[in-house]
Design a protein around this nucleic acid. Structure first.
Lengths: 217, 217
DNA sequence: CAAAATCCTGACCAAGTAGTCATCATTTTT
DNA sequence: AAAAATGATGACTACTTGGTCAGGATTTTG
């Protein structure tokens, strides 16, 4: 019976999840400084001291949350190889990132704020795992180019632009909703995804895969 | 002698500019809540009370700054007509926005933070001037499309994507610098501009104007 | 069931905050 | 130069905040 003793104190695990979820809401809406531990406590339905019991400090909670968020960034694009089809790979990556913006907008906002403020808690991550990831992806795109599978574009800037556009729908939702007069629904995200896939792929001299072509009418 | 009496108290005008500049730096780095009036005072080299003398409150200062920032958004693209050339017009707009990201990154960051937090002080602006601007631009792009000057794309999403990519270089500079191992210089911005112009214009079925084609080597 | 570990919380505190106010200094106007 | 307007600031206050701590409750383990 090993499992029982190491059940991670299911009470604690549950509470931690609850607190992290409340913190995500609060931090995404008001930023790190703009959020008080009391607000998180209210959101979680717990007394303030209980928050500090599970996370040693507000900063500790924030860092834990940030780590959870970074784990979300993992993608099937991580595993792409130079033998894959660039059109499919890039289109799927764009679609995947758009889905993230739709389903995890709060995580995206917290990440965006962190980077806006100079990414004090991410510098290490950026300089290690993230650079390695980037180098790998750049190499594969370059290989696609030398294989003549796609037009010569700068891979770094291409990735920046994909991130910029996909994250924009989460981070700037207030502006987008105001301008459209209504919030983005699932169908709108699908439209935006198709538009973006077409823009990027055409710009890379690639044909748009069937499944990202306009279906209806 | 009307002018002399209404010289706007050049002392006051100068101080206000100084304070706004200090506030821009502080707010862009730490957000509204994360910035104390004292920090702004230190940055401006003035006692705290003097800040409150010129701007009635921290919030008042922030709103004044935000208005200054919104005025910066004015663009030559505002004046484009359906008779203009879409390739030139869009390329110039992209280049102009990239220049803004390079020369006014703090303004871009403050705007981004404001929108991230739900744009509480911009809702009115969004719903009025901004929607009107948007409708006008969308109509012109649609007219370009019906004239057969460019491919059929959704004008709203196209504009969103242009904003996303251009602002990204200001707002996410911490991430970009980390990944590149060095900050973006003027020449790098020019490279990024060319890449983005090519991506967008090609994606709209437009030829890239001469001046945005790779020059060197 | 006893002991140990984990969980929970009210009372409290030191530090930092935005903003007020009374007073003084300088500049502008008459 | 007198009066008026504008500019400048130290001292103070009311309030919020993150975090501690001591002690109690509940659950888990032997």
């Amino acid at each position: 019976m090993v499992s029982k003793s190491k059940m991670e104190g299911s009470i604690g695990a549950k509470n931690k999840r609850n607190i992290l979820s409340a913190a995500e809401k609060a931090f995404a809406t008001h930023g790190f400084k703009g959020t008080s531990v009391q607000q998180i406590a209210d959101e979680a339905g717990l007394p303030k001291t209980n928050i500090l019991y599970y996370f040693k400090s507000k900063q500790g909670l924030y860092v834990a949350l940030l780590q959870d968020i970074m784990a979300l960034w993992n993608s099937r694009f991580d595993m792409v190889t130079s033998k894959d089809d660039p059109a499919i790979s890039l289109a799927d990556y764009i679609a995947e990132k758009m889905t993230m913006s739709r389903t995890h907008p709060l995580a995206s906002k917290i990440f965006a704020m962190e980077v806006l403020n100079g990414a004090p808690y991410l510098t290490k991550f950026f300089r290690n795992e993230h650079v390695a990831w980037m180098n790998g992806r750049v190499a594969i795109i370059e290989s696609w180019i030398t294989q003549g599978k796609m037009q010569a574009v700068d891979p770094s800037y291409l990735l920046f632009h994909i991130w910029a556009c996909t994250q924009h729908y989460a981070d700037f939702s207030a502006q987008i909703s105001s301008l459209r007069g209504k919030t983005m629904k699932r169908a709108d995200f699908d439209d935006a995804t198709r538009e973006l896939v077409r823009l990027v792929l055409t710009g890379c001299g690639l044909a748009v895969p069937q499944k990202y072509l306009e279906t209806a009418e």
